[in-house]
């Protein structure tokens, strides 16, 4: 295990225990029931340990599945865990469109069988200045892209989340963004070995609040780039419109959204983050600590302008 200045970081449980010390605390802790997040189906044959894995302490399953941003199910962090069970994920069809040799629709079950599933333990940095360490299961997006054979005009990949208004209270309600949720990557970003299409976490099928059955994971970018419950993948020549980069006239979130401690959100600093489960904030790293793998893709770009 990597030794971080962990002694400094009081863990959350300790923080809670400190205050709850004494008889009342002991009683209360006895009564504290672990909040059971719904576990998904166990995934078979997951290849463990990739060279990109971080050895940092993993965020508990319970936290990863109870603290989410998934505006289709509401704007509070607890809303997705409460509402996402309504999402219908079977059957699930992913439409591959645009600049590829053979545009076609894939059934999710067919798609997952095309690639070996591997585990990737990645840091996840949310734009709201908190972070987690998540053991994802999935396959590199690059593997899929190679199979799809994009044409020479394919410069970008656009993604779209499912819209099921009847099952998504946030879509019918008032959440400030439009639906469907849109994301996009430059083709080289999509081909980067770090970029993952996740189908599970902790070796189990992806919980709905985390974007079942298929979601994007780009660990050097803010979490919102990791579009959930994908139903469309489109290859195109022009930079796709994305939900958050359109929001607020494009002044608040850029298309790239690379983790960057030097570019603040207009209303809060991105210099530090709170790792879920820790007491003190830690410094945010450029590219969320994945600079070695990704910085070269942005050589010569002014990252304050292309934020």
């Amino acid at each position: 295990m990597k030794i971080t200045p962990k002694d400094l970081y009081l863990q959350r449980r300790r923080f809670l225990q400190l205050g709850a010390a004494g008889a009342v605390g002991l009683l209360a802790r006895g009564a504290a029931a672990a909040k059971g997040a719904v576990h998904g189906e166990k995934l078979a044959g997951v290849k463990p340990m990739s060279k990109f894995d971080t050895t940092e302490k993993k965020t508990p399953f319970e936290d990863i599945t109870s603290y989410n941003n998934f505006y289709e199910f509401g704007t509070d962090k607890e809303d997705p865990a409460a509402n996402a069970h309504k999402l219908v994920t079977k059957p699930w069809v992913i439409s591959v469109e645009g600049e590829v040799k053979k545009p076609r629709k894939y059934d999710f079950d067919e798609l997952v069988k095309m690639f070996p599933i591997e585990e990737r333990v990645y840091r996840m940095r949310c734009v709201e200045a908190w972070s987690m360490v998540i053991p994802w299961d999935g396959f590199p997006l690059a593997d899929l892209i190679r199979k799809l054979e994009p044409t020479s005009r394919a410069k970008y990949v656009a993604f779209e989340t499912v819209v099921q208004p009847e099952n998504m209270p946030g879509v019918k309600g008032f959440s400030g963004i439009g639906f469907p949720y849109l994301e996009g990557l430059r083709l080289d970003e999509a081909m980067n070995p770090l970029t993952l299409l996740a189908t599970g976490l902790y070796g189990e099928a992806l919980p709905k609040q985390d974007g079942a059955p298929l979601r994007l994971v780009t660990p050097w970018k803010y979490g919102f780039k990791g579009i959930k419950s994908i139903v469309k993948i489109k290859f195109q020549e022009t930079q796709p419109a994305t939900t958050w980069s359109q929001y607020g006239g494009g002044t608040e979130y850029g298309f790239y959204a690379n983790v960057n401690p030097d570019v603040d959100h207009p209303r809060w600093s991105q210099g530090r983050e709170r790792r879920i489960g820790e007491f003190l904030k830690r410094k945010t790293l450029p590219f969320n600590g994945y600079g070695d793998q990704v910085a070269s893709m942005y050589a010569g770009m002014d990252l304050k302008k292309f934020f």
Binding site: R12, R13, F15, L16, G19, A20, V24, G25, A28, R29, A31, A32, K35, T59, E62, D63, S66, Y67, K77, E78, W130, R274, I276, G277, F279
Partner: peptide, 13 residues
């Protein structure tokens, strides 16, 4: 909620 350790994943926030 604090005593029951029921403040969620990010209790400080």
């Amino acid at each position: 909620r604090y005593l029951r350790d029921d403040l969620g994943a990010n209790p400080i926030s």
